[in-house]
Design a protein around this nucleic acid. Structure first.
Length: 892
DNA sequence: CGAACCTTTGAGTTA
DNA sequence: CAAAGGTTCG
């Protein structure tokens, strides 16, 4: 990849955008926006002709480049706002861009920038226009994951597939993967089609798509897939869009998946691209080699030696590069006349491989778009020296990267801190304490973020902050419109809006309970299927017959007449008033009012919020359209509060102070990532770590806990290998402030087995920790190697005053077997995967069996009542029945 | 049919 | 530990 890393020379200034034009722009007072850009940024903004790849490291002004570039194009009169296609991944990014361009060019222009948006939003827009061409009606609905799963469940039933063996959500995931790779049912490689339900995966996919068409619906993946199909099957339509979009800009290019890539490629071809080229391409896609790595794994990131990795892509988006017959010959030539496409991204921030993103897309940009100008932005304007050094050093451990060197002119600032704590509660406590300290020092809470790897980690912080009375906001969490009450309310409105929305109808027929249970629904289904009519129609018909029992028939009649009434009112009343009426008259509001569970009040509040938010729309269908795609709640953004979110949702944000808890093997890097994609997974986790660190402007604080509760069970953990990969000179190891001696709780670190090359820290805390962890990592014993742990045990004993320990103290401080539980996730008994390679998993049965008499440090004596792998169910004499990992007990 | 109770399973990241 | 699914009883 090394020669792809050389920045290419600047092409001659475009004729039409030359000095005269710029002078004119300047005369209009418009060039001010170019001031203050550094040389690279300016190059990226001003190179308007031909493909441009901007490799923008974290904090190097990526958004600024994008927005300025658009402003520049507009200002030079190179294109009308409606001739610019600008795609982002999130609504937030799109909004931000609109805002910033508006500031530069004047807000009025933005009204006319209809093609700035997320891939999905643009997909909807295009598909609505040409719905008939892909077998839809323009009013199609967009299914969310929930609808999707329910639909698949129905299909599984129809196919007589045992949902327990072949869960719907698994299939949803598989299908998602197919769609991400742009695969229609007939393109699925044989092996993958076999993988689900003994080869019926493909049939399911076909049936699913058929069902969607009948429902006049699409899922998220279809938005892209159908768009590609639309373009491929209708070259004239494609040509229209190719002509329209004179400039294409793509944000976060490293996150594009194959489908998005194909879509962009179609659009980036010159309008004259003959049909033949496309067809050829299609054909080549279909019979592309179906290599699925011997073990079925998908290797993701670009391979280290620059070879195309053996990924499991069934279709090869770059067939012409494969050895063998050149499938695209002279017809390819026109396709090479590429548009002014500008992709901005950072391979080091590619963190969506699991969602189908292909880092490869960015790594091979220059091959896809020959003659591309590559601009690297390496000047970081965000973080202080130590933070940047730590982040750079960490990410340098990755092999599959283009390689950038971030620089800063900022002060060194504070070192990155690493703090160990006994358990996740203590972790939350010390972070809470530190935040209070910052607060006392007049830091803004808004400028503080806690970035976690997995959302279950958030709870601990929420709990702690509630007790402290520290204001916080969770960003990203369960989305507003994913909440049950919102989805119910929306389902009502969907049925009002469209009588054929079966999924919505099904969702609310019996919510609130009105005696229309499975039996009635089944009858409705039969009726509807027999006549090929929507459920609602079936209901309307069946209340006229006496097939139903009187009771259900009565309530069904009430429901049907209510809906008809609401539909009539929809013509006359504003949608928010209507919504209120619907929710009241359906008894839905009343249902929650009666509910006396803790969150009922909040749900009613959410419903009100929903109704309120409806005011901003033209009409009901306008609202529904919007909500299916965009409805991120970023209310209450004004209050000063600590931000809690996942690392993934933190991408693109920055804060003065960033807390990064949970740096433990198994959690971060996440075990499943390693299991599923091995080394590539590890590298993606490392990029995530890099993203986390680079969110910080002035302070980055890392944490690991020795014990963490996962799945309701306490597990011992070892510090993340990423901690070892940080540069010693820029890191300070501190001890947990609250509660007992910070160093005491260390479980094993990989230092034991991997001393080579590891940096070692010199602070007392770290050394002590290392010494104390002792040699136990070499052993994989189950408590019968007691002697090995005595040193540890003594140490812990000595240190354990007990007083400062959390009430709910986690496992076993003393005790021999206790010291040994360094496995993560409760499953593993091998030393954890060290290099990110797969380690053979032993399913190894426990050394315990039912009836064993055991001792647990916290719960005392008890009898084993069940054994499940290494998870034991134990009836304790005093503490009752508990589930624990076997390493925490010993036989007596 | 539905509430109440019991068992099982699962928590990785998202438009 | 919590939600979701399954079973049982009224």
């Amino acid at each position: 990849m090394s020669d792809s890393t050389k920045p290419l020379s600047v092409p001659p200034p475009p004729a039409s955008g030359g000095i005269a034009a710029r002078a004119m722009a300047a005369a209009r007072g418009g060039a001010a926006y170019l001031e203050g850009l550094n040389a690279e940024q300016r190059l990226a903004v001003e190179t308007l002709d031909g493909p441009v790849l901007v490799l923008a490291g974290a904090g190097t002004g990526k958004t600024r480049v994008l927005t300025t570039r658009i402003a520049h194009i507009l200002n030079l009169g190179r294109a009308h706002p409606s001739q610019i296609l600008a795609v982002t991944f999130t609504n937030k990014a799109a909004r931000e861009m609109k805002l910033r361009i508006g500031q530069m060019v004047g807000g009025g222009v933005m009204e006319g920038m209809p093609w700035l948006g997320t891939f999905h939003a643009i997909g909807v827009k295009i598909l609505r226009r040409h719905a008939e061409l892909v077998g839809l009606k323009s009013g199609f609905t967009i299914l969310d994951t929930d609808d999707q799963i329910r639909l698949i469940k129905q299909l599984l039933e129809a196919f007589n597939i045992d949902e327990k063996r072949w869960p719907a959500r698994i299939f949803a995931g598989i299908m998602d993967g197919w769609k991400n790779r742009g695969l229609t049912p007939d393109q699925i490689p044989g092996g993958e089609a076999m993988a689900f339900a003994n080869g019926r995966g493909k049939d399911l996919y076909v049936a699913y798509q058929e069902r969607l068409k009948t429902l006049n619906a699409v899922d998220f993946g279809d938005l892209l897939l159908e768009m590609i199909r639309l373009f491929r099957e209708n070259p004239d339509v494609l040509r229209d869009y190719q002509r329209r979009f004179r400039y294409i800009l793509v944000d976060e290019y490293q996150d594009t998946n194959v489908a998005q890539y194909l879509w962009l490629r179609l659009l980036a071809q010159a309008p004259s691209a003959p049909k033949g080229g496309l067809i050829l391409r299609d054909a080549s896609l279909r019979d592309a080699p179906q290599d699925e790595g011997e073990d079925g794994r998908t290797l993701r990131s670009a391979s280290q030696d620059g070879e195309k990795s053996d990924n499991a892509l069934a279709i090869d988006p770059h067939p012409e590069e494969r050895g063998g017959t050149p499938r695209v010959s002279k017809d390819e030539a026109p396709a090479r006349e590429l548009k002014n496409i500008c992709c901005v991204g950072d391979d080091d921030q590619s963190i969506y491989g699991w969602r189908g993103a292909e880092v490869d897309n960015i790594l091979r940009f220059e091959k896809d778009f020959p003659g591309a100008t590559v601009v690297r932005l390496e000047r970081n304007y965000r973080s202080t020296g130590h933070i940047l050094a730590a982040a750079s050093h960490l990410i340098a451990h990755n092999e599959g990267r283009l390689g950038k060197t971030l620089r800063t002119e900022d002060v060194p600032g504070e070192k990155v801190t690493v703090t160990g704590s006994w358990d996740s509660e203590e972790e939350a406590r010390s972070i809470g304490d530190e935040i209070e300290e910052l607060q006392r020092a007049k830091h803004k809470l808004n400028e503080i973020a806690i970035l976690v790897r997995a959302s279950f980690q958030m709870r601990e912080f929420e709990d702690r902050f509630v007790t402290l009375g520290l204001p916080y906001r969770v960003i990203g969490g369960p989305r507003f419109y994913e909440r049950a009450e919102i989805r119910d309310a929306l389902a009502y409105l969907r049925v009002v809006n469209s009588a054929s929305d079966d999924l919505a109808f099904e969702r609310i027929v019996n919510v609130p309970r009105r005696g229309l249970g499975d039996a009635t629904l089944q009858q409705l289904h039969d009726h509807a299927r027999a006549r090929r009519i929507p459920l609602f129609e079936a209901a309307r018909a069946m209340i006229e017959t006496d097939e139903l029992k009187p009771k259900p028939r009565g309530s069904l009649r009430d429901l049907v007449t209510s809906f008809e009434r609401w539909r009539a009112q929809n013509q006359t009343l504003p949608q928010d008033e209507l919504a209120e009426i619907v929710l009241d008259e359906s008894g839905y509001t009343a249902m929650w009012q009666k509910d006396r569970s803790a969150d009922a009040a909040g749900r009613l509040e959410n419903l009100k919020e929903l109704v309120r938010s409806m005011q901003d729309f033209e009409n009901l269908s306008g609202f529904l359209e919007h909500i299916s795609l965009v409805m991120d709640r970023d209310g209450e953004a004004n209050a000063d509060a600590v931000n809690i979110m996942t690392l993934h949702s933190a991408k693109g944000l920055e804060f003065d102070t960033v807390f990064l808890p949970g740096w433990e093997e198994g959690l971060f890097p996440h075990q499943r990532s390693l299991d599923e994609t091995g080394r590539a997974g590890l590298e993606e986790e490392r990029r995530l770590a890099h993203v986390g660190l680079t969110r910080a402007r002035r302070r980055a604080k890392l944490y690991f806990a020795t014990n963490r509760r996962m799945h309701g069970m306490w597990n011992s953990t070892i510090p993340s290998r990423f901690l070892d990969e940080l540069p010693e000179a820029h890191v300070e190891v501190t001890e947990s402030k609250s509660s007992f001696a910070g160093g005491s709780g260390y479980a094993a670190s990989r230092f034991d087995s991997f001393a080579a090359g590891g940096s070692s820290y010199s602070t007392p805390g770290w050394q002590r920790a290392q010494k104390n962890r002792a040699k136990k990592d070499e052993f994989d014993g189950f408590g019968d190697e007691g002697a090995e742990y005595e040193a540890e045990a003594r140490f812990l004993d000595a240190d354990d005053s007990g007083a400062a320990r959390p009430v709910q103290s986690p496992p076993p401080l003393r005790g021999r077997s206790a010291a040994e539980g360094r496995r993560v996730g409760g499953q593993r008994r091998e030393p954890l995967t060290i290099e990110g390679e797969l380690v053979a998993k032993s399913t190894g049965a426990s050394h315990f069996s039912v009836g064993d008499r055991v001792f647990h440090i916290k719960f005392g004596n008890g009898n084993v009542t069940a054994v499940d792998g290494n998870k034991l169910t134990i009836a304790f004499d005093k503490a009752g029945e508990k589930r624990v990992v076997d390493s925490f007990v010993e036989r007596v």
